[in-house]
């Protein structure tokens, strides 16, 4: 039970990053800057929280809710800014995506460190965090059922909602169809009158914004407001999760919980040695590699990465 709750709790952080990255990758951009972007989103969100707490040191239900909203908006804004920088470099200037992504991660993690240690006042985070983790009012009344489904903070439900909405948008709407076409074959999309550049920018920025929420969630909900440099690792795992779920946001909800379970399993299994626990922590990565191998061996078109992933697009290329 505790394992399940823990898995859900950490899994949500993966889920944000994963859905954000899926949206970005669907536009044909392998954004290795996600770890940096998640960190930066966390920094933005935390900054918003600390500012809010300085305005309302004792927030009530209403100002608390507003604080969450404010933090979410700012976190998304911060993350999307880095996403925009990434898009500018890779879309407009057609720089190499891998190299740019890694530079974004370096920069984002560094800047986050600077903000969190030099600028943001973290003293009130524990109080603020209680608003993030507050469970739905009727959770307690429903026993174990309530605990599993209703005991989580608001950002948990937001993540699941975003994943479901993303899945719906990608598969059931015009916008989603167009976006997938951009990632599969930008020349085709362009010839069909789709503004490829705009789609790539918007997808990357929205994806980054969503990923940034993962950072905020990790600090404020999963870690209950204590600061830690673990976001980068979460970001890389989120990228792994994208592969694991074969670019499907709805599947990534379950995938995130599974990864979450594997991530924390070591702490819950009693009677194993320290060293075995260290090995257990490897599981998500090993599982991802196995999925990667299996999908590439089967080679079914529908389970492959977007065909134009990682390639720049220049219309007048001859």
């Amino acid at each position: 039970m505790a394992l399940l709750l823990g898995a859900i709790s950490i899994g949500i952080a993966f889920l944000y990053g994963c859905v954000g990255e899926i949206i970005t990758e669907k536009s044909g951009h392998l954004n290795l800057g996600i770890p940096g972007i998640m960190s930066f989103g966390a920094a933005g969100g935390c900054m918003a929280v600390s500012i809010w707490m300085s305005w309302f040191p004792q927030p009530n239900g209403f100002t608390g809710a507003l604080m969450i909203f404010f933090a979410i908006v700012i976190a998304m804004l911060f993350a999307a800014t880095l996403g925009a920088l990434y898009s500018f470099l890779t879309v407009s200037l057609r720089c190499n995506q891998n190299v740019t992504g890694l530079a974004i991660t370096t920069f984002g993690v560094g800047f986050t460190m600077f903000l969190m240690e030099g600028v943001v006042d973290r003293t009130m985070f524990a109080t603020a965090s209680t608003f993030f983790t507050a469970s739905l009012p009727f959770a307690g009344a429903l026993g174990w059922f309530g605990e599993i489904f209703f005991s989580h903070g608001v950002m948990t439900y937001l993540a699941i909602a975003i994943a479901i909405i993303s899945s719906w948008v990608l598969n059931k709407t015009r916008v989603g169809l167009n976006l997938r076409a951009v990632g599969e074959n930008p020349a085709t999309a362009d010839a069909a009158g789709i503004n490829v550049t705009a789609y790539k920018y918007v997808a990357t920025c929205i994806g980054s914004g969503i990923a940034g929420l993962g950072g905020l969630y990790y600090i404020m909900d999963n870690l209950s407001g204590s600061w830690e440099y673990g976001i980068e690792a979460i970001g890389w795992l989120a990228i792994a999760l994208v592969i694991f779920t074969m670019w499907r946001p709805n599947l990534s909800i379950l995938g995130a919980f599974l990864f979450g379970g594997l991530y924390i399993a070591a702490e819950f299994i009693t009677g194993v040695s320290f060293s075995d626990k260290a090995l257990l922590k490897l599981l998500p990565y090993v599982v991802t590699i196995i999925v990667l191998i299996i999908t590439s061996v089967i080679g079914k078109k529908e389970t492959q990465p977007p065909a134009a992933l990682g390639l720049p697009y220049f219309r007048e290329e001859r």
Binding site: L85, L89, S92, L93, R94, C95, N96, V99, T100, A103, I104, T106, F107, G108, V109, G110, F111, T112, M113, F114, E117, G118
Partner: peptide
């Protein structure tokens, strides 16, 4: 180690961008 990362990041951005 925040600052070195930031400055390295900035340098990379510029040099990556100039390839364009």
């Amino acid at each position: 180690s925040a600052f070195p990362s930031i400055v390295t990041g900035i340098i990379f951005f510029f040099v990556i961008a100039c390839e364009f």
